[in-house]
C-alpha cells in the first residue's frame, strides 16, 4: 500500500508542475507544441495542405505543430472541436468551405463567427473535365446538350451537395443527372470508364489524368486562367458567369488574445511564403491564395452570400 501512496504523491507533484506551466502570459507564447486540428482524414487534400503548412510554420514559431485529424460530419466534428477549444493559441484549426456551407444547411451548430481568423492559405478553383474521347469539345456543347436533354447528362459528383454543379445549374437554369461519388478518387475512374459523362474537381486531383490523356479539361470556374493549366478557358471567358472553388485557411477559437493572434498570423504568413511550401503547392497543383485575417473575413462573407443564394434555390 505504501508503494501506491508514494506513486500517488508523484502524480500529485507532476500535476502541480503542469498547472504551473499552464499559466503563462502571451509574451512568451508559444512555450509548448501547438495542435493543428484538421477536420478531414489523413491523406486528403486538406490534410496535405495542413501538414505541409505545419511543417513550414514550425520554423517560424519555434515549436512543433502536431496535426490532429478529427474527422466526422463532413468536417463539422473537427471544426466544432476547434471552435470550442480553449482560446489560448495552442489549438489552431484548419477551416474549409464547409464552415460556411454546413450551418447554412443546418448540419452544424457553429458558424465562421465562432472563430477568430488567422490567415487564408489556399484556394482551388473547380475544373470541369470530360473523358478524352468525349463528344463534347467545349463547355458550350455540354451546356447545350444538358439544355436539350434535361437531367440526361450524367455528372460524377465528388460530394453531396455539390456546390460547383449547383452554381452552374442555377446560372443556366439547366439540370444534370447527379451521381454522388465518395470523393474524386471514385468519381474519376467512373468518367474514364465511360460510366458517367463528366466531373468537376480541383486541378490537383485531375492533373495526372489530364497529362495522361485520359481526361480533357473543358473550363475552369476561376476568375482568370490558372498557371498550371494556361490553355483551359474560364467559365467567364466562355460566357457563363460562374466562379466557384474550395478554400482552406487557419483560425483559432473566438476570444484568443490579440498578441497571440498577431504572432500566429506572422508565422503563418511567413510559412505560406516559404519556398518549401510554395514548391509543395506548385507540385501538388494546389493554388496558394494568401489573404490577411481581415481580407479572409471579407472573403468568407462573400462566399457566405454565394452559398446562401445556392441553398435558397435548392
Amino acid at each position: 500500500m505504501k508503494k501506491i501512496i508514494s506513486l500517488l504523491s508523484v502524480f500529485a507533484i507532476l500535476t502541480t508542475a503542469v498547472f504551473a506551466e499552464g499559466t503563462q502570459d502571451a509574451a512568451a507564447y508559444p512555450t509548448k507544441s501547438i495542435n493543428l486540428i484538421v477536420p478531414f482524414s489523413a491523406g486528403g487534400g486538406t490534410d496535405a495542405v495542413a501538414r505541409a503548412l505545419a511543417k513550414s510554420a514550425e520554423k517560424y514559431l519555434g515549436q512543433s505543430i502536431v496535426v490532429l485529424n478529427k474527422t466526422g460530419g463532413s468536417g463539422a466534428v473537427g471544426m466544432t472541436a476547434g471552435a470550442t477549444s480553449t482560446p489560448d493559441g495552442y489549438t489552431v484549426t484548419m477551416i474549409t468551405r464547409e464552415i460556411v456551407s454546413l450551418p447554412l444547411m443546418g448540419l452544424a451548430q457553429i458558424t465562421p463567427d465562432d472563430f477568430d481568423l488567422i490567415r487564408l492559405a489556399n484556394m482551388d478553383p473547380a475544373l470541369l473535365c470530360v473523358k478524352e474521347d468525349s463528344p463534347y469539345e467545349n463547355i458550350q456543347q455540354l451546356v447545350e446538350a444538358a439544355r436539350a436533354d434535361d437531367g440526361g447528362i450524367r455528372f460524377a459528383s465528388t460530394a453531396k451537395p455539390n456546390f460547383y454543379i449547383l452554381a452552374l445549374e442555377n446560372n443556366q437554369g439547366i439540370s444534370f443527372n447527379q451521381i454522388p461519388f465518395n470523393g474524386a478518387a471514385e468519381a474519376i475512374p467512373s468518367v474514364i470508364g465511360g460510366h458517367t459523362d463528366f466531373t468537376i474537381a480541383g486541378p490537383g486531383e485531375l492533373i495526372a489524368q489530364i497529362e495522361g490523356k485520359q481526361l480533357r479539361p473543358l473550363a475552369i470556374m476561376a476568375p482568370e486562367r490558372i498557371k498550371a493549366l494556361p490553355d483551359v478557358p474560364t467559365f467567364k471567358e466562355e460566357g457563363y458567369d460562374v466562379v466557384s472553388g474550395t478554400w482552406r485557411g487557419l483560425a483559432v477559437p473566438k476570444g484568443t488574445p490579440e498578441a497571440i493572434k498577431t504572432k500566429l498570423e506572422d508565422a503563418f504568413a511567413k510559412a505560406i511564403a516559404d519556398p518549401e511550401f510554395v514548391s509543395f503547392m506548385e507540385n501538388a497543383k494546389l493554388g496558394i491564395y494568401d489573404l490577411s485575417s481581415e481580407d479572409f473575413r471579407e472573403y468568407i462573407n462573400s462566399d457566405t452570400a454565394v452559398i446562401t443564394d445556392i441553398v435558397s434555390k435548392l
Partner: peptide
C-alpha cells in the same frame, strides 16, 4: 495506371509522390 488511389493508403502514397513533384498516373 489511372492516377487515382485504390485505397486510403494508396491515397497517401499519391500525396507523397505529388509532394516529390511526380504526378502518378499513366505518364
Amino acid at each position: 495506371t489511372l492516377g487515382v488511389p485504390g485505397d486510403a493508403v494508396a491515397a497517401i502514397l499519391l500525396g507523397a509522390l505529388i509532394i516529390q513533384g511526380i504526378a502518378p498516373g499513366p505518364m
